[in-house]
Amino acid sequence: MADALIVAALVLTAFMATAVVLTRDPARQAIVLSGYGLALAILFLLLQAPDVAMSQTAVGTVVVPLIVILAIHAIRRHHTREPDRRGRE
């Protein structure tokens, strides 16, 4: 049973990794990335690594999405508030 679980988790992880890469809009990608972090956490616990699963949960579900969203927010705000000097937008 453990083997079947590991195979399922591996397939799920590979699927989510591909999905993260293929989601082109960064804001939507952040949501998918958060799900990918959960998939990794399940895989790590199945590989008998609870410490690593906890680390991945802590980093992958809150910190990285928050940083990504804040970066998107900063970039977007900059684009709208200060129209490009070279008239590109």
């Binding site: 910190v63 928050l66 940083i67 804040l70 970066a71 927010h73 900063a74 705000r77």
Partner: peptide, 10 residues
């Protein structure tokens, strides 16, 4: 790090 990102974003 997050404080600096917050400053940038908000």
């Amino acid at each position: 790090v997050l404080a600096k990102f917050f400053e940038q974003a908000l």
